[in-house]
Design a protein around this nucleic acid. Structure first.
Lengths: 200, 200
DNA sequence: ATTTTTCTGGGTTGCTCACCCCAATACGGT
DNA sequence: ACCGTATTGGGGTGAGCAACCCAGAAAAAT
Protein backbone atom coordinates (compact mmCIF):
# COMPACT_ATOMS: atom_id res chain seq x y z
CA UNK A 1 0.00 0.00 0.00
CA UNK A 2 1.69 3.17 -1.20
CA UNK A 3 1.92 5.84 1.39
CA UNK A 4 -0.37 8.87 1.09
CA UNK A 5 0.98 10.71 4.10
CA UNK A 6 3.54 13.44 3.93
CA UNK A 7 6.97 11.87 3.69
CA UNK A 8 9.86 12.63 5.97
CA UNK A 9 12.94 14.14 4.42
CA UNK A 10 14.46 10.68 4.27
CA UNK A 11 11.42 9.20 2.59
CA UNK A 12 11.37 12.06 0.08
CA UNK A 13 15.01 11.43 -0.73
CA UNK A 14 14.43 7.71 -1.25
CA UNK A 15 11.38 8.34 -3.40
CA UNK A 16 13.28 10.89 -5.48
CA UNK A 17 16.16 8.44 -5.91
CA UNK A 18 13.73 5.83 -7.24
CA UNK A 19 12.11 8.25 -9.69
CA UNK A 20 15.46 9.51 -10.95
CA UNK A 21 16.69 5.96 -11.47
CA UNK A 22 13.51 5.02 -13.32
CA UNK A 23 13.66 8.15 -15.47
CA UNK A 24 17.24 7.38 -16.44
CA UNK A 25 16.43 3.79 -17.38
CA UNK A 26 13.32 4.82 -19.31
CA UNK A 27 15.43 7.36 -21.23
CA UNK A 28 18.16 4.89 -22.15
CA UNK A 29 16.10 1.78 -22.85
CA UNK A 30 12.53 2.85 -23.55
CA UNK A 31 9.80 2.37 -20.96
CA UNK A 32 8.78 -1.10 -22.11
CA UNK A 33 12.26 -2.47 -21.52
CA UNK A 34 12.46 -1.29 -17.93
CA UNK A 35 11.44 -3.87 -15.34
CA UNK A 36 10.73 -2.77 -11.80
CA UNK A 37 13.59 -5.03 -10.71
CA UNK A 38 15.92 -2.90 -12.86
CA UNK A 39 14.73 0.24 -11.08
CA UNK A 40 15.23 -1.45 -7.71
CA UNK A 41 18.79 -2.35 -8.57
CA UNK A 42 19.59 1.11 -9.98
CA UNK A 43 18.10 2.92 -6.97
CA UNK A 44 19.41 0.36 -4.45
CA UNK A 45 15.98 -0.32 -2.94
CA UNK A 46 13.98 -3.47 -2.35
CA UNK A 47 10.67 -4.39 -3.91
CA UNK A 48 8.91 -3.47 -0.68
CA UNK A 49 10.37 -0.01 -0.76
CA UNK A 50 9.24 0.47 -4.30
CA UNK A 51 5.68 -0.48 -3.36
CA UNK A 52 5.89 1.59 -0.23
CA UNK A 53 6.27 4.69 -2.38
CA UNK A 54 4.34 3.74 -5.51
CA UNK A 55 1.02 1.99 -5.95
CA UNK A 56 2.10 0.11 -9.05
CA UNK A 57 4.15 0.35 -12.18
CA UNK A 58 1.93 2.99 -13.77
CA UNK A 59 2.23 5.14 -10.65
CA UNK A 60 6.00 5.07 -10.97
CA UNK A 61 5.88 5.95 -14.66
CA UNK A 62 3.55 8.84 -13.85
CA UNK A 63 6.14 10.05 -11.38
CA UNK A 64 8.76 9.82 -14.12
CA UNK A 65 6.63 12.08 -16.34
CA UNK A 66 6.18 14.55 -13.48
CA UNK A 67 9.93 14.46 -12.87
CA UNK A 68 10.71 15.19 -16.50
CA UNK A 69 8.17 18.00 -16.62
CA UNK A 70 9.65 19.54 -13.47
CA UNK A 71 13.14 19.24 -14.93
CA UNK A 72 11.99 21.18 -17.97
CA UNK A 73 10.59 23.96 -15.78
CA UNK A 74 13.79 24.09 -13.74
CA UNK A 75 15.85 24.54 -16.89
CA UNK A 76 13.75 27.35 -18.32
CA UNK A 77 15.40 30.70 -18.62
CA UNK A 78 13.89 33.83 -20.06
CA UNK A 79 13.62 33.78 -23.84
CA UNK A 80 12.70 37.37 -24.59
CA UNK A 81 15.35 38.43 -27.11
CA UNK A 82 16.49 36.84 -30.35
CA UNK A 83 19.94 36.03 -28.94
CA UNK A 84 18.27 34.37 -25.94
CA UNK A 85 16.08 32.37 -28.30
CA UNK A 86 19.10 31.24 -30.29
CA UNK A 87 20.82 30.26 -27.04
CA UNK A 88 17.74 28.22 -26.11
CA UNK A 89 17.96 26.42 -29.44
CA UNK A 90 21.67 25.75 -29.04
CA UNK A 91 21.25 24.47 -25.47
CA UNK A 92 18.58 22.02 -26.57
CA UNK A 93 20.68 20.85 -29.50
CA UNK A 94 23.70 20.39 -27.24
CA UNK A 95 21.64 18.36 -24.76
CA UNK A 96 20.42 15.94 -27.43
CA UNK A 97 23.74 15.86 -29.30
CA UNK A 98 25.50 14.74 -26.11
CA UNK A 99 23.84 11.31 -26.52
CA UNK A 100 23.85 11.43 -30.31
CA UNK A 101 20.06 11.60 -29.97
CA UNK A 102 19.86 8.15 -28.37
CA UNK A 103 16.76 7.97 -26.17
CA UNK A 104 15.21 10.92 -27.99
CA UNK A 105 13.64 13.70 -25.94
CA UNK A 106 13.45 13.03 -22.21
CA UNK A 107 9.92 14.44 -22.06
CA UNK A 108 8.59 14.08 -25.61
CA UNK A 109 9.50 10.43 -26.08
CA UNK A 110 7.18 9.58 -23.19
CA UNK A 111 4.15 10.55 -25.29
CA UNK A 112 4.14 7.68 -27.82
CA UNK A 113 5.22 5.27 -25.07
CA UNK A 114 2.74 6.12 -22.33
CA UNK A 115 -0.05 8.36 -23.65
CA UNK A 116 -2.26 5.53 -24.90
CA UNK A 117 -1.81 3.51 -21.71
CA UNK A 118 -2.35 5.97 -18.91
CA UNK A 119 -4.63 9.03 -19.12
CA UNK A 120 -3.02 10.58 -16.05
CA UNK A 121 0.44 10.45 -17.52
CA UNK A 122 -0.89 11.89 -20.75
CA UNK A 123 -2.47 14.74 -18.77
CA UNK A 124 0.86 15.46 -17.11
CA UNK A 125 2.60 15.55 -20.48
CA UNK A 126 -0.15 17.64 -22.01
CA UNK A 127 0.18 20.24 -19.27
CA UNK A 128 3.95 20.25 -19.56
CA UNK A 129 3.83 21.01 -23.26
CA UNK A 130 1.07 23.54 -22.87
CA UNK A 131 3.13 25.40 -20.26
CA UNK A 132 6.30 25.15 -22.29
CA UNK A 133 4.65 26.71 -25.33
CA UNK A 134 3.13 29.37 -23.08
CA UNK A 135 6.55 30.17 -21.64
CA UNK A 136 8.07 30.61 -25.08
CA UNK A 137 5.04 32.59 -26.24
CA UNK A 138 5.48 34.93 -23.27
CA UNK A 139 9.06 35.58 -24.36
CA UNK A 140 7.96 36.20 -27.92
CA UNK A 141 5.21 38.51 -26.65
CA UNK A 142 7.89 40.49 -24.84
CA UNK A 143 9.70 40.76 -28.13
CA UNK A 144 6.62 42.29 -29.77
CA UNK A 145 6.40 44.76 -26.87
CA UNK A 146 10.06 45.73 -27.17
CA UNK A 147 9.70 46.12 -30.94
CA UNK A 148 11.99 43.20 -31.81
CA UNK A 149 9.00 41.53 -33.47
CA UNK A 150 6.14 43.37 -35.18
CA UNK A 151 2.73 43.57 -33.50
CA UNK A 152 1.40 41.39 -36.32
CA UNK A 153 3.55 38.46 -35.20
CA UNK A 154 1.59 35.76 -33.37
CA UNK A 155 3.68 34.62 -30.37
CA UNK A 156 1.61 31.51 -29.72
CA UNK A 157 1.86 30.40 -33.34
CA UNK A 158 5.61 30.87 -33.36
CA UNK A 159 6.08 29.16 -29.99
CA UNK A 160 4.10 26.16 -31.21
CA UNK A 161 6.27 26.01 -34.31
CA UNK A 162 9.41 26.08 -32.15
CA UNK A 163 8.30 23.28 -29.82
CA UNK A 164 6.97 21.18 -32.69
CA UNK A 165 10.17 21.66 -34.69
CA UNK A 166 12.16 20.75 -31.59
CA UNK A 167 10.21 17.56 -30.81
CA UNK A 168 9.92 16.55 -34.45
CA UNK A 169 13.60 17.32 -34.98
CA UNK A 170 14.58 15.20 -31.99
CA UNK A 171 12.46 12.34 -33.26
CA UNK A 172 14.16 12.51 -36.67
CA UNK A 173 17.54 12.69 -34.96
CA UNK A 174 16.69 9.69 -32.82
CA UNK A 175 15.75 7.63 -35.85
CA UNK A 176 18.82 8.74 -37.82
CA UNK A 177 21.31 8.96 -34.91
CA UNK A 178 22.35 12.26 -36.34
CA UNK A 179 21.76 15.69 -34.81
CA UNK A 180 21.54 17.37 -38.23
CA UNK A 181 17.78 17.14 -38.84
CA UNK A 182 17.12 18.62 -35.41
CA UNK A 183 19.49 21.47 -36.10
CA UNK A 184 18.10 22.00 -39.59
CA UNK A 185 14.49 22.11 -38.42
CA UNK A 186 15.22 24.54 -35.58
CA UNK A 187 17.34 26.78 -37.76
CA UNK A 188 14.55 26.95 -40.31
CA UNK A 189 12.12 27.87 -37.54
CA UNK A 190 14.52 30.58 -36.37
CA UNK A 191 14.85 31.78 -39.99
CA UNK A 192 11.11 32.35 -39.97
CA UNK A 193 11.13 34.28 -36.72
CA UNK A 194 14.16 36.30 -37.80
CA UNK A 195 12.40 37.14 -41.07
CA UNK A 196 9.64 38.76 -39.02
CA UNK A 197 12.04 40.74 -36.84
CA UNK A 198 11.82 44.48 -37.28
CA UNK A 199 15.35 45.35 -36.25
CA UNK A 200 18.46 43.93 -37.95
CA UNK B 1 11.59 -21.50 -37.80
CA UNK B 2 10.43 -18.61 -39.94
CA UNK B 3 10.39 -19.33 -43.59
CA UNK B 4 13.01 -17.77 -45.84
CA UNK B 5 11.70 -19.16 -49.09
CA UNK B 6 9.50 -17.24 -51.45
CA UNK B 7 5.94 -17.36 -50.24
CA UNK B 8 2.97 -18.43 -52.31
CA UNK B 9 0.25 -15.92 -52.91
CA UNK B 10 -1.66 -17.47 -50.06
CA UNK B 11 1.30 -17.25 -47.74
CA UNK B 12 1.91 -13.65 -48.71
CA UNK B 13 -1.71 -12.83 -48.00
CA UNK B 14 -1.56 -14.45 -44.57
CA UNK B 15 1.70 -12.73 -43.72
CA UNK B 16 0.27 -9.37 -44.83
CA UNK B 17 -2.84 -9.95 -42.74
CA UNK B 18 -0.68 -10.56 -39.69
CA UNK B 19 1.40 -7.42 -40.26
CA UNK B 20 -1.68 -5.28 -40.85
CA UNK B 21 -3.30 -6.59 -37.69
CA UNK B 22 -0.14 -5.96 -35.69
CA UNK B 23 0.25 -2.46 -37.14
CA UNK B 24 -3.32 -1.62 -36.20
CA UNK B 25 -2.91 -2.85 -32.63
CA UNK B 26 0.44 -1.09 -32.21
CA UNK B 27 -1.20 2.13 -33.42
CA UNK B 28 -4.14 1.92 -31.06
CA UNK B 29 -2.45 0.58 -27.93
CA UNK B 30 1.26 1.28 -28.21
CA UNK B 31 3.70 -1.49 -29.03
CA UNK B 32 4.37 -2.51 -25.42
CA UNK B 33 0.70 -3.31 -24.83
CA UNK B 34 0.42 -5.62 -27.81
CA UNK B 35 0.91 -9.30 -27.03
CA UNK B 36 1.50 -11.76 -29.82
CA UNK B 37 -1.68 -13.52 -28.73
CA UNK B 38 -3.56 -10.29 -29.49
CA UNK B 39 -2.11 -10.23 -33.01
CA UNK B 40 -3.03 -13.89 -33.44
CA UNK B 41 -6.63 -13.20 -32.49
CA UNK B 42 -6.90 -10.10 -34.65
CA UNK B 43 -5.39 -11.82 -37.70
CA UNK B 44 -7.17 -15.12 -37.02
CA UNK B 45 -3.98 -17.18 -37.04
CA UNK B 46 -2.43 -19.63 -34.60
CA UNK B 47 0.84 -19.23 -32.76
CA UNK B 48 2.47 -21.66 -35.16
CA UNK B 49 1.47 -19.55 -38.11
CA UNK B 50 2.89 -16.48 -36.48
CA UNK B 51 6.25 -18.22 -35.97
CA UNK B 52 6.09 -19.70 -39.43
CA UNK B 53 6.22 -16.19 -40.88
CA UNK B 54 8.23 -14.32 -38.25
CA UNK B 55 11.33 -15.30 -36.32
CA UNK B 56 10.24 -13.58 -33.13
CA UNK B 57 8.44 -10.57 -31.76
CA UNK B 58 11.09 -8.12 -32.95
CA UNK B 59 10.86 -9.55 -36.47
CA UNK B 60 7.15 -8.85 -36.48
CA UNK B 61 7.61 -5.30 -35.20
CA UNK B 62 10.22 -4.73 -37.89
CA UNK B 63 7.64 -5.82 -40.43
CA UNK B 64 5.21 -3.31 -38.92
CA UNK B 65 7.77 -0.54 -39.46
CA UNK B 66 8.34 -1.66 -43.05
CA UNK B 67 4.56 -1.74 -43.56
CA UNK B 68 4.13 1.78 -42.24
CA UNK B 69 7.02 3.07 -44.35
CA UNK B 70 5.52 1.44 -47.46
CA UNK B 71 2.14 2.96 -46.65
CA UNK B 72 3.73 6.40 -46.54
CA UNK B 73 5.33 5.89 -49.96
CA UNK B 74 2.04 4.64 -51.41
CA UNK B 75 0.29 7.77 -50.19
CA UNK B 76 2.82 10.20 -51.62
CA UNK B 77 1.62 12.48 -54.35
CA UNK B 78 3.61 15.18 -56.07
CA UNK B 79 4.13 18.25 -53.92
CA UNK B 80 5.55 20.69 -56.44
CA UNK B 81 3.24 23.69 -56.14
CA UNK B 82 2.13 25.70 -53.13
CA UNK B 83 -1.50 24.53 -53.46
CA UNK B 84 -0.25 20.91 -53.60
CA UNK B 85 1.82 21.55 -50.49
CA UNK B 86 -1.18 22.98 -48.68
CA UNK B 87 -3.21 19.96 -49.75
CA UNK B 88 -0.49 17.69 -48.35
CA UNK B 89 -0.70 19.52 -45.02
CA UNK B 90 -4.49 19.31 -44.95
CA UNK B 91 -4.48 15.60 -45.81
CA UNK B 92 -2.08 14.86 -42.97
CA UNK B 93 -4.10 16.95 -40.53
CA UNK B 94 -7.30 15.19 -41.59
CA UNK B 95 -5.68 11.78 -41.12
CA UNK B 96 -4.60 12.56 -37.54
CA UNK B 97 -7.78 14.49 -36.71
CA UNK B 98 -9.88 11.46 -37.64
CA UNK B 99 -8.67 9.76 -34.44
CA UNK B 100 -8.38 12.99 -32.46
CA UNK B 101 -4.63 12.28 -32.52
CA UNK B 102 -4.99 9.09 -30.51
CA UNK B 103 -2.11 6.76 -31.33
CA UNK B 104 -0.07 9.65 -32.69
CA UNK B 105 1.72 9.25 -36.03
CA UNK B 106 1.56 5.75 -37.49
CA UNK B 107 5.21 5.92 -38.50
CA UNK B 108 6.73 8.53 -36.17
CA UNK B 109 5.39 7.07 -32.93
CA UNK B 110 7.39 3.90 -33.63
CA UNK B 111 10.65 5.78 -33.10
CA UNK B 112 10.47 6.34 -29.32
CA UNK B 113 8.91 2.90 -28.88
CA UNK B 114 11.28 0.77 -30.91
CA UNK B 115 14.40 2.70 -31.87
CA UNK B 116 16.33 1.94 -28.67
CA UNK B 117 15.41 -1.75 -28.77
CA UNK B 118 16.05 -2.83 -32.32
CA UNK B 119 18.71 -1.29 -34.59
CA UNK B 120 17.11 -2.83 -37.68
CA UNK B 121 13.77 -1.22 -36.99
CA UNK B 122 15.50 2.08 -36.34
CA UNK B 123 17.29 1.76 -39.70
CA UNK B 124 13.96 1.18 -41.44
CA UNK B 125 12.48 4.25 -39.79
CA UNK B 126 15.58 6.32 -40.51
CA UNK B 127 15.39 5.46 -44.20
CA UNK B 128 11.68 6.18 -44.32
CA UNK B 129 12.16 9.67 -42.90
CA UNK B 130 15.19 10.36 -45.06
CA UNK B 131 13.21 9.43 -48.17
CA UNK B 132 10.18 11.41 -47.07
CA UNK B 133 12.22 14.56 -46.58
CA UNK B 134 13.91 13.92 -49.93
CA UNK B 135 10.54 13.58 -51.62
CA UNK B 136 9.31 16.88 -50.21
CA UNK B 137 12.65 18.51 -51.02
CA UNK B 138 12.29 17.35 -54.62
CA UNK B 139 8.90 19.05 -54.82
CA UNK B 140 10.30 22.24 -53.32
CA UNK B 141 13.24 22.08 -55.75
CA UNK B 142 10.74 21.96 -58.58
CA UNK B 143 9.19 25.09 -57.11
CA UNK B 144 12.56 26.87 -57.26
CA UNK B 145 12.91 25.74 -60.90
CA UNK B 146 9.44 26.99 -61.80
CA UNK B 147 10.08 30.26 -60.07
CA UNK B 148 7.51 29.73 -57.31
CA UNK B 149 10.36 29.85 -54.80
CA UNK B 150 13.52 31.90 -55.19
CA UNK B 151 16.81 30.18 -56.04
CA UNK B 152 18.06 31.19 -52.59
CA UNK B 153 15.47 28.93 -50.92
CA UNK B 154 16.95 25.72 -49.52
CA UNK B 155 14.53 22.86 -50.34
CA UNK B 156 16.13 20.40 -47.96
CA UNK B 157 15.99 22.87 -45.06
CA UNK B 158 12.34 23.61 -45.73
CA UNK B 159 11.42 19.94 -46.18
CA UNK B 160 13.10 19.09 -42.87
CA UNK B 161 11.14 21.87 -41.19
CA UNK B 162 7.90 20.52 -42.65
CA UNK B 163 8.48 16.92 -41.51
CA UNK B 164 9.72 18.02 -38.10
CA UNK B 165 6.76 20.36 -37.62
CA UNK B 166 4.46 17.55 -38.70
CA UNK B 167 5.93 14.95 -36.34
CA UNK B 168 6.33 17.38 -33.47
CA UNK B 169 2.83 18.71 -34.11
CA UNK B 170 1.40 15.21 -34.02
CA UNK B 171 3.21 14.45 -30.78
CA UNK B 172 1.78 17.60 -29.18
CA UNK B 173 -1.67 16.71 -30.52
CA UNK B 174 -1.36 13.20 -29.12
CA UNK B 175 -0.50 14.49 -25.67
CA UNK B 176 -3.23 17.12 -25.73
CA UNK B 177 -5.88 15.15 -27.68
CA UNK B 178 -6.38 18.25 -29.74
CA UNK B 179 -5.45 18.73 -33.37
CA UNK B 180 -4.80 22.47 -32.88
CA UNK B 181 -1.07 22.38 -32.11
CA UNK B 182 -0.46 20.22 -35.17
CA UNK B 183 -2.39 22.65 -37.35
CA UNK B 184 -0.71 25.65 -35.78
CA UNK B 185 2.79 24.26 -36.27
CA UNK B 186 2.18 23.31 -39.88
CA UNK B 187 0.53 26.60 -40.72
CA UNK B 188 3.48 28.46 -39.28
CA UNK B 189 5.81 26.31 -41.40
CA UNK B 190 3.69 27.11 -44.46
CA UNK B 191 3.78 30.81 -43.51
CA UNK B 192 7.55 30.61 -43.72
CA UNK B 193 7.55 28.94 -47.11
CA UNK B 194 4.89 31.32 -48.42
CA UNK B 195 6.96 34.28 -47.21
CA UNK B 196 9.76 33.09 -49.49
CA UNK B 197 7.48 32.62 -52.49
CA UNK B 198 8.19 34.96 -55.35
CA UNK B 199 4.76 35.06 -56.89
CA UNK B 200 1.59 36.17 -55.01
C1' DA C 1 13.24 6.10 27.84
C1' DT C 2 9.33 4.36 25.59
C1' DT C 3 6.02 4.15 22.12
C1' DT C 4 4.47 5.00 17.64
C1' DT C 5 5.29 5.75 12.97
C1' DT C 6 8.02 5.39 8.96
C1' DC C 7 11.09 3.09 6.29
C1' DT C 8 13.41 -1.00 4.80
C1' DG C 9 14.59 -6.10 3.91
C1' DG C 10 14.01 -10.52 1.99
C1' DG C 11 11.66 -13.05 0.16
C1' DT C 12 7.10 -15.64 -2.41
C1' DT C 13 3.24 -16.18 -5.72
C1' DG C 14 0.92 -16.98 -9.84
C1' DC C 15 -0.05 -15.01 -14.06
C1' DT C 16 1.33 -13.71 -18.62
C1' DC C 17 4.14 -13.99 -22.12
C1' DA C 18 7.30 -15.36 -26.02
C1' DC C 19 8.68 -19.22 -27.90
C1' DC C 20 8.55 -23.96 -29.47
C1' DC C 21 6.95 -28.82 -30.53
C1' DC C 22 4.46 -32.23 -33.08
C1' DA C 23 1.12 -33.25 -36.25
C1' DA C 24 -2.51 -32.50 -39.62
C1' DT C 25 -4.39 -30.29 -43.63
C1' DA C 26 -4.21 -27.84 -47.90
C1' DC C 27 -2.19 -26.82 -52.07
C1' DG C 28 0.70 -26.99 -56.21
C1' DG C 29 3.24 -29.54 -59.56
C1' DT C 30 3.87 -33.63 -62.22
C1' DA D 1 -4.03 -39.52 -58.43
C1' DC D 2 0.12 -39.05 -55.97
C1' DC D 3 3.87 -36.84 -53.78
C1' DG D 4 6.33 -33.13 -51.88
C1' DT D 5 6.02 -28.67 -50.08
C1' DA D 6 3.67 -24.97 -47.86
C1' DT D 7 0.52 -23.66 -44.63
C1' DT D 8 -2.10 -24.30 -40.64
C1' DG D 9 -3.71 -26.14 -35.95
C1' DG D 10 -3.54 -27.01 -31.10
C1' DG D 11 -1.49 -27.16 -27.75
C1' DG D 12 2.73 -27.04 -23.82
C1' DT D 13 6.76 -24.91 -21.24
C1' DG D 14 9.27 -22.19 -18.13
C1' DA D 15 11.22 -17.65 -17.58
C1' DG D 16 10.23 -13.15 -16.22
C1' DC D 17 7.43 -10.08 -14.35
C1' DA D 18 4.33 -7.13 -11.31
C1' DA D 19 2.43 -7.39 -7.13
C1' DC D 20 2.30 -8.62 -2.43
C1' DC D 21 3.36 -10.62 2.36
C1' DC D 22 5.52 -10.63 6.87
C1' DA D 23 8.73 -8.87 9.83
C1' DG D 24 12.44 -6.08 11.51
C1' DA D 25 15.15 -1.78 11.80
C1' DA D 26 15.33 3.11 11.99
C1' DA D 27 13.49 7.42 12.97
C1' DA D 28 10.24 10.53 14.98
C1' DA D 29 7.06 11.73 18.55
C1' DT D 30 5.75 11.72 23.29
Amino acid sequence: MATDRPLTAKGLATRARIVAAAADLVFHRGAAQVALADVQAAADVSGSQLYHYFTDRDDLLRAVAVHRAAELVANQGPVDTLPALRAWVEANIALIAADNAAGGCRLGSLVPQLAETDPQTRATLSTAFHDWIAHLAAGLTTMTATGVLPPTADPHRLATLLVAALEGGILLAQAQRDITPMRTALEAALDHIASLATSP
